[in-house]
Write a protein that binds this DNA or RNA. Structure first.
Length: 493
RNA sequence: GGCGGCAUAGCCAAGUGGCUAAGGCAGCGGUCUGCAAAACCGUUAUUCUCCGGUUCGAAUCCGGAUGCCGCCUCCA
């Protein structure tokens, strides 16, 4: 079974076959560093993080390039407004981006180039395009002549004519064709800029990606990704630039993640209905955000709401409850003692086979265009089976139980590694949640635990009325108690 | 106006020609518990927006209708 990926270019799922056996080169358009990242950025980052992780799991040597756009009109505008340089503004938001992504468990890309580090390359590429007659200079600006590139529109599936029919593009007298786009923009006095053969100026938005992808991955590489809003014009223009210059295909597979919506409406900067990652993390555990996103297929739209996120948290809590039980059973139990899985019988054997088969089923779902939703379904199926086992034949410690639960734990860990989920220590997961929620609700962990201790005393005296009164009092603050055989644990509702 | 996507239970969400339509959340009944909570067991879509068609067989393919959404402009 090989990895199959949906290719926007062909509108089909295709078997992934890299240019070089065993290697995969991926380029994903990163952020423009002029503001905090929102949950749409989080989705794109998480989706392609999972792609890279899964390809590595499948044995590919992955080179993942994700750029930072650190020069652009919006950065310039913000810098002007705040009396800072564009470098300072970009630096601020790149650092914030890195923090947010780390919180969400997004691994750093192999290479994270910045546009301003590649101005020379951009100038060289624009020169080539001018030499090939694909671009023209107008008073300090350079434009790409779209109608001279035969393949223009092949990614987004439309022709120049029909795009013009829709015509909401701004009128710019300098352009020969309204669809032409800027490769280089001359700087106005006072604006930042770089010297070029066409005067002081700055690059257009699309040229950086053509240059950086070629620099780190070559003329043609395996996978190019980004949000679906980048299909047009950004990726279409990248194709025109790169393929126009090299005469070779840019990327073999184009992957685009679907949008984040809020109340059934596209979430976007222009609509102003966006939540930053930070705002979300103040209310929800980071792993819940990640799980919520991966519970839908990456190409479908996903609708955020507090309600939906709370439900996801309930599910994730359940996973970690089970993980905690496995941990407890394994730390107290005897060694597996050379017991062979093949010799197990009954319930031990059933779970052992489920556990050892989980990875394969999981990977099969992931092979099918990164079907994380189905893959996660298999994991939760495994969770239920582990719980059922622990309620039945797994109650007593035994070498068999150790073997079976260790197999289950390993299966969860291997799958979790690919998703970037399910890998915290259960104690840390619950403790983190408790810390955030006590902070939000103005409670103290010590207070709560003191009440729990008082209730224990009452319970030992069989004073149920008082014990229940304490539980009720905690419940009013959203604290739910769980009396276990060894101790009482608690969490927020 | 042009192009494209989606429509599966109370909600979220897999499933793209053939085994009982995954999984999560919520609900209900039961087991366990001092009572709860958690966990488990059972249960909640004879049917996949509607109407036609292809096929031995369709949620899955084709045609049409309706509804929702996205792109065509900076956007992950």
């Amino acid at each position: 079974m090989s990895v199959r990926l949906y290719n926007t270019l062909t509108r089909r799922k295709e078997d992934f076959s890299p240019l070089q056996v065993g290697k995969a080169g991926i380029y994903v358009c990163g952020i423009t560093a002029y503001d905090l990242c929102h949950i749409g950025h989080a989705r794109a980052a998480i989706v392609f993080d999972v792609l890279a992780r899964f390809l590595r799991y499948r044995g590919y040597d992955v080179t993942y390039v994700k750029n930072f756009t650190d020069v652009d009109d919006k950065i310039i505008a913000r810098a002007e407004r705040e009396g800072r340089t564009i470098g300072e503004v970009a630096e601020t938001f790149i650092a914030a981006h890195d923090e947010d992504m780390a919180a969400l468990g997004v691994e750093r890309a192999t290479v994270t180039p910045r546009a301003t580090e590649h101005i020379d390359g951009m100038i060289a590429l624009i020169r080539t395009l001018l030499e090939k007659g694909l671009a023209y200079v107008v008073s300090g600006d350079v434009y790409y002549a779209v109608e001279r590139f035969a393949g223009y529109g092949k990614l987004s599936g439309r022709g120049i004519e029909e795009m013009l029919a829709g015509a909401r593009i701004d009128v710019n007298e300098k352009k020969t064709n309204p669809m032409d786009f800027a490769l280089w923009k001359g700087s106005k006095p006072g604006e930042p800029g770089w010297d070029s053969p066409w005067g002081k100026g700055r690059p257009g938005w699309h040229i950086e990606c053509s240059v950086m992808s070629q620099r780190y991955l070559g003329d043609t590489f395996d996978i190019h990704g980004g949000g679906e809003d980048l299909i047009f014009p950004h990726h279409e223009n990248e194709i025109a630039q790169s393929e126009g210059a090299t005469g070779r295909p840019l990327a073999r597979v184009w992957m685009h993640n679907g949008f984040v919506r809020v109340n059934k409406e596209k979430m976007s900067k222009s609509l102003g209905n966006f939540s930053t990652i930070r705002e979300m993390l103040a209310v929800h555990p980071p792993e819940v955000l990640r799980l919520f996103i991966l519970q839908s297929h990456y190409r479908s739209p996903v609708d955020f709401s507090d309600q939906a996120l709370r439900e996801t948290r309930t599910g994730l809590d359940r996973f970690y409850e089970t993980r905690r039980k496995i941990q407890a059973a394994l730390s107290g139990g005897p060694a597996a003692d050379g017991t062979a899985g093949e010799r197990l019988t009954g319930g031990h054997r059933r779970l052992y086979e489920k556990a050892t088969g989980l990875q394969e089923r999981f990977a099969g779902a992931m092979d099918d265009d990164l079907n994380t939703a189905r893959a996660i379904g298999y994991i939760f199926d495994g969770v239920r089976q582990v719980n059922a086992y622990l309620d039945a034949e797994g109650q007593a410690a035994s070498p068999e139980r150790t073997l079976v639960l260790a197999a289950a734990r390993q299966a969860f860990d291997r799958c979790g590694d690919v998703l970037g989920l399910f890998r915290q220590d259960p104690r840390d997961y619950f403790a983190m949640d408790q810390r955030r929620e006590t902070g939000r609700r103005g409670l103290e962990v010590a207070e709560i635990e003191d009440l729990i201790a008082q209730r224990l005393t009452a319970r030992q005296a069989r004073n149920w009325a008082q014990a229940d009164a304490i539980r009720q009092r905690l419940a009013e603050h959203g604290v739910i108690l769980q009396d276990g055989p060894a101790a009482t644990t608690w969490k927020f509702a």
